[in-house]
Write a protein that binds this DNA or RNA. Structure first.
Lengths: 211, 211, 211, 211
DNA sequence: AATGAATGAGAATTCATTCAT
DNA sequence: TATGAATGAATTCTCATTCAT
């Protein structure tokens, strides 16, 4: 299969295979613990081939990040775009989106969480760094705007919306990390999904206005 | 200053300087991304000096972790020990503790908490690994117990207390990390304390029973 | 030459070159005084290449030892296997074997023989350590048995056969070492072979029974 | 004790203590495995003090070597000096000397054996290197001369006396090494003295002229 | 395009040597 | 003199990247 496809298509397929192998390995082992050998091994290719498709380990990581952020931005916009959606509904959509991302076959790039990615993003081409920053801001801002709207229409308690957005994003990323690592030390919890759900509901209740 | 102190004191100071430099760098960059050169560089010492005070990179990491967990355990017990304290008050004390820890001269080594750092704990002496696990469990269990009490006396909404503890702990650690790192991407937020406070209040409201 | 060979052969050649360089350096300078840089330097390769072919300095040392002991065991058995060989003839064969080993294209790794090298065998995988011990014992025991036979049939003077084996083995290894190193202190001797021959004959005469 | 002695005497005592500590450690652990800290620790002094008495680790090793060689030369001359001593008796005296050295509280500097000391003697002041070479030659030459005499007077079988000397010296050093190291791998042999004795006797018988 | 052997910069660690007290 | 903290060169090992085939 594939051997009959045009070189263009063939090339694109190889690129995707490397991309996907890298995504999974970075997700599982982190940036530093993933080697080019690991990636090409998983993709059944030689080390040299990697460099025909990507400039460096840092680059593929950045591209992976951008890929994820773009996907996230799209989904976030989809969840909040409709004009006549109530902020309540929008937030509920975002919550669902988080579940979906966690469960999706794509999974979430755990290492996207700032503290984990400093390393890889350090000596990035300025253009790429810019793009990541912007996408990251875009995502965050939709969250902030949605919360702001909720506050404006008195559906949510009046607080600094940036702070609330930080909390939501923080819980999300923290629980993902817990889920990834805690397993080794402690097997009480297998129920990330439940925890995530409870967390979001708790926060949601927490921003309800005083009754 | 310092030049006048006894060698004992002088030595202790150097040890503390290395310890503190390591703490900050591990917190900011993680275990793998922090080199001995970084640590001694920050402490204005040579690489060799590090090994005069600590056995290895792994050892200082473990000591830092134990140091933090011991401090945390003491404080947590202090905040919840008294018999006739209401769960509400206990939780409020814990919240205050979180602030205090964030501001304390010790700084917080959230990154050092086991769940955050599989990396460093891999080839630790079994005794040390055990100690870390136990301290970690102890801290977490106080949180769980306090929440359980609150639920038993109907002050908190009935949920899985482990899940709620995860949420609280998750928010706490996530916000610390955000505070440390986000600055690079975005300088809107300098107000960790406020955010932390809001977060805890939000969660607290979120676990109030339905009225 | 070589550029025309298959990658397989090419790779095997490189491995052999490293192996051989290591053998010579360990022999000359001992385990601790031989660095990976020395080895790869001698083989005109970079340090990194070493690790493409061997896991560690300890591993190549162990492999070199096993290689030599296996060769030695095979040859020793060959020299003494035949049933109706007189002990005299067997010992004579062993003597010839010693010459052969000295001159063989394998060179002799006398320095690698366990008794000579506590250093390197310290943190060896237990399986490898066992293998080395066993091979080493096997070789030595053939020597002891042969001498024992000679004593039993009154061809050799009655002594502790282990002691005699130690002497023979000791002379052999000592002369090899002398041959390799003494050159620096003294260049009178270029005639290892002669010395070895005389030594063996002398010992042989020495264990003849009193007439 | 000692506190009342003159500075001169006091200084000499300290120097001796370091010297003796170094001798024992080099003997037990070899040159590379002995650190200045080990030496000064054994002598209950600080690291810095070492350098008040000796220029470097290499220097003390060389001095230790010279010390041993001088002792050896003196003893060798003592054992062979007398005019009317038969070569047989002289050789017998040398044999006794070997035992004595092995058993003496001074022990023998195992690392003196050429292959083991290359490291330490590499970048020696030329004068010291010369001295070592000369002493070493002197010792060896007495052995050669004695054997030569024995041959001249038909007491020993006619062979190359240098070769015979090599054999004797080789056995001696090899057995010392065996004694030091083999213990760890194999505890059959605790009887170095016996082995050494048997070895010398065997060689002695081996150089008897044909009867 | 694909390969994978070779490279070498960098990381952790050790230890002889120096030097301020 | 004596001390021992500090230094940094040297060593083992890792891995992203290159390049000849």
């Amino acid at each position: 299969m594939g051997k009959l496809d045009s070189p263009q298509i063939e090339k694109e397929r190889t690129r995707k295979e490397i991309f996907e192998a890298a995504r999974q390995l970075f997700l599982k082992n982190g940036y530093r613990n993933t080697t080019i050998k690991d990636i090409t091994g998983k993709a059944s290719l030689s080390i040299g081939t990697f460099y025909l498709y990507f400039e460096s380990k840092g680059e593929i990581y950045a591209l992976l990040t951008i890929d994820f952020l773009k996907y996230m931005k799209t989904e976030i916009l989809k969840a909040t775009r409709e004009k006549n959606l109530s902020p309540k509904k929008k937030l509920s959509n975002l919550r669902q989106l988080f579940f979906k991302m966690y469960e999706s076959d794509k999974r979430i790039l755990i290492n996207l969480i700032p503290s984990r990615s400093t390393d890889a993003l350090n000596d990035l081409a300025p253009g790429i760094a810019r793009q990541i920053k912007d996408l990251s801001s875009d995502c965050f801002n939709v969250l902030v705007t949605t919360i702001q709207e909720g506050m404006d229409s008195k559906i949510f308690r009046r607080e600094n919306p940036v702070v609330i957005a930080d909390i939501i994003w923080g819980i999300f990323s923290a629980l993902i990390l817990l889920a990834e690592n805690e397993r080794m030390l402690d097997n009480r919890k297998d129920f990330v999904k439940t925890t995530l759900e409870t967390a979001m509901e708790t926060v949601y209740r927490g921003i309800n206005p005083v009754i």
